[in-house]
């Protein structure tokens, strides 16, 4: 699904990613953990195609195709989805209008029929119910005035509607209480199948009780310094990062 080879990225002359190697296969869940400032969000942004980064080395393949030259929208249409650590508030833009435009852009690209207003509403309302989002959200501007938890669930709603082949969730669990955490985790588990993959960036082991990772990676100072299975997350929970950093 995803193959990252020796990826190096700078922002304003400062090297943030210092040679990332990561390989994600279909049907896998990978967790990325690491202290603040390690470069986790930078990695997520570079995968989604945010401007402002200088990619100085390396390659990123999605299903065998190099995506570094693609625009953010082309990547989204190819099935990359980033759940933002800080979802953006867009006053004045109606949530329904936004989401339907996005869904139809992606469907069109995949050669699927665009959804009309009726069918879209039926689908989105069913998904909202699963995520325990009130229907009135559809009438409100995108993320405007949403609580932290609502914004995160809205990211999961968008993910569900867009049905991406590669979802990158950047600290979607931060700031959620245990109920909201379970709702978000259920949302991820529902889209999970043998033809897609998820990368879950988190600080906390507790999310990984619900979204069980096949691999856990520790990102520190722009490099993956340790990879393991889910027991690594438990070790980190217990011992913190210091023992790894000292060895790195």
């Amino acid at each position: 699904m995803l193959e990252i080879k020796n990826l190096k990225a700078r922002i304003e002359e400062k090297e943030i990613l210092k040679g990332i190697n990561l390989s994600v296969n279909n049907g896998e869940v990978h967790a990325i953990m690491g202290p603040n400032g390690s470069g986790k969000s930078t990695l997520a942004s570079v995968l989604a195609g945010r401007e402002g980064y200088d990619i100085t080395d390396g390659e990123v393949f999605l299903r065998g195709n190099d995506i570094l030259e693609l625009s953010p929208e082309e990547r989204a249409r190819e099935g990359v989805f980033l759940a933002f650590q800080y979802p953006v508030e867009i006053p004045g833009v109606n949530s329904t209008y936004f989401l339907r435009s996005a869904v139809n852009q992606v469907r069109k690209h995949r050669g699927e029929e665009e959804l009309d207003a009726m069918n879209f509403l039926k689908l989105v309302k069913a998904k909202m119910k699963e995520l325990e989002l009130a229907e009135e959200f559809l009438k409100r501007p995108v993320n405007a005035g949403f609580s932290g938890g609502e914004k995160k669930r809205n990211e999961i709603l968008q993910m569900t509607m867009l049905n991406p082949s590669l979802a990158v969730l950047d600290e979607t669990d931060s700031g959620l209480d245990i109920d909201a955490l379970r709702i978000v985790a259920d949302g991820v588990n529902r889209i999970k199948n043998q033809n897609n993959a998820q990368i879950v960036i988190t600080h906390y082991q507790r999310l990984l009780d619900y979204i069980v990772p096949d691999f856990v990676h520790v990102l520190y100072d722009g490099r993956i310094i340790k990879s393991g299975d889910k027991t690594l997350a438990h070790d980190l929970e217990e011992k913190g990062y210091d023992w790894l950093i000292k060895n790195a």
Partner: peptide, 29 residues
């Protein structure tokens, strides 16, 4: 808002559509 444009593009809208949506939103307020 550049962050808003990126957010919309990351959901599959091209730059022009994203700009239009933001302007429409701005007047829509």
């Amino acid at each position: 808002d550049k962050d808003a444009i990126f957010y919309l593009r990351a959901r599959g809208l091209d730059t022009k559509a994203a700009q239009q949506m933001l302007m429409h939103g701005f007047t829509g307020e």
